[in-house]
Amino acid sequence: MDFTKVVLASLLIASPIAAQEGHGVSPADLERGMQIFLNNCAGCHGPDGDLISGVALYSGRFRRAQGDNELRRIVQNGIAGTPMPPGNYTDEQAGMIVAYLRSMAATGGGKLTGPPGNAESGKAIVEGRGQCLECHRIGRQGTITGPDLTGIGRMRRAVDLEKSLVDPDAEIRPDNLTVRAVAADGTPITGRLLNMDTYSIQILDARSASLRTLKKDELRDYEVMKKSPMPSYRGKLSEQEISDVVSYLVSLKEQM
């Protein structure tokens, strides 16, 4: 699924909140909603929203809430008589969480397509044949040119990781965009986009693994790539191997 479609779907779903508050739901809002969810809700509900029996947050259907306003109130006030505690969120934060919950349903409902995976086998693939650590870091291993996979299991759903492995271009998160530029003297420059304004671009330079500012008026050309530099593993790894890798990545909960 194209990322813009995901956002569009989320915008449509979240429109009651958007209309009330006078602003739309941006990719950054969804990202923030996801972070809040993963940091505060996933401990009980799981990153896929399926850990509590009978509560399928990923499904887009909620027994106790008809609309977004009710859902937001539950996020803020909890549910009396149940283990669901109140959360100290502003209306804006609660709205972001709700938008993220809605987007879970719009992005596959957390259902994996492959067979059950084996994390240990997945680890061997990540560290060996998959060559994942040539661009990614896990703890003290690997490099920093690609997205950091340390603790990725706390930050991404299994279904998202699976999708990234087989179709890395489908959804490139704002944190993981790549800039390709050509300096005035013709030198090619590649790096992860960290920040950007009218006059400059801040990147983590892939060649030197260092922080760098590019001044736009000193570049011959630049673009924010719409495709991921990561290769698709569809056909390179079997379905079982992809499930194994996903299982391993989901098991990475530690922050360092």
């Binding site: 060559q131 040539e134 490099t143 892939a206 060649r207 030197s208 693994a209 260092s210």
Partner: peptide, 18 residues
């Protein structure tokens, strides 16, 4: 630019700064 090249250049830069 392939991933292996990125790795090698990144490692070289890290070694230089350290």
């Amino acid at each position: 630019m392939n991933a292996r090249f990125l790795l090698l250049t990144a490692l070289a830069a890290a070694a230089a700064s350290a």
